[in-house]
């Protein structure tokens, strides 16, 4: 093939019409507090693993709300389940429990 020295970049626009809410809905069923997140970032700021792995409960929840399951799973792998995020969440979300529930859902899906 002829090389012209340029290529077409894929669009980075998120099409919110095509978002699959099914994982988010399953999570909300067992962890209704998932809906409470106001994206303040306290969890990410305090996360011990975050600075090396990119783990952030806020981002995991956002990814799931935007249907990006694989990205959420990738972030979750960095979690050490220390629970510091739970201590700082101002909305009182039991983030550690939420992470475990999420892992359980992912685990079920792998079976």
């Amino acid at each position: 093939m002829m090389e012209f020295g340029f290529s077409i970049s894929p669009s980075s626009t998120m099409n919110l019409d095509k978002v699959d809410f099914s994982l988010y809905e399953r999570l909300c069923e067992i962890e209704p507090d998932a809906k409470k997140c106001m994206a303040c970032g306290s969890c990410s700021a305090t996360c011990t693993a975050g600075q090396w792995t990119g783990m952030s409960v806020r981002k995991v929840l956002l990814d799931i709300q935007r249907g990006k399951e694989a990205e959420a799973a990738r972030l979750l792998k960095g979690c050490m389940l220390c629970g510091k995020c739970t201590m700082v969440c101002p909305r009182g979300i039991n983030t550690r429990h939420l992470i475990l529930s999420l892992c359980r859902i992912y685990g079920e899906d792998e079976k």
Partner: peptide
């Protein structure tokens, strides 16, 4: 822009 995701977004 969905500024939390840092990406442009559109919706119908």
């Amino acid at each position: 822009e969905d500024t939390l995701s840092g990406k442009p977004a559109k919706i119908t």
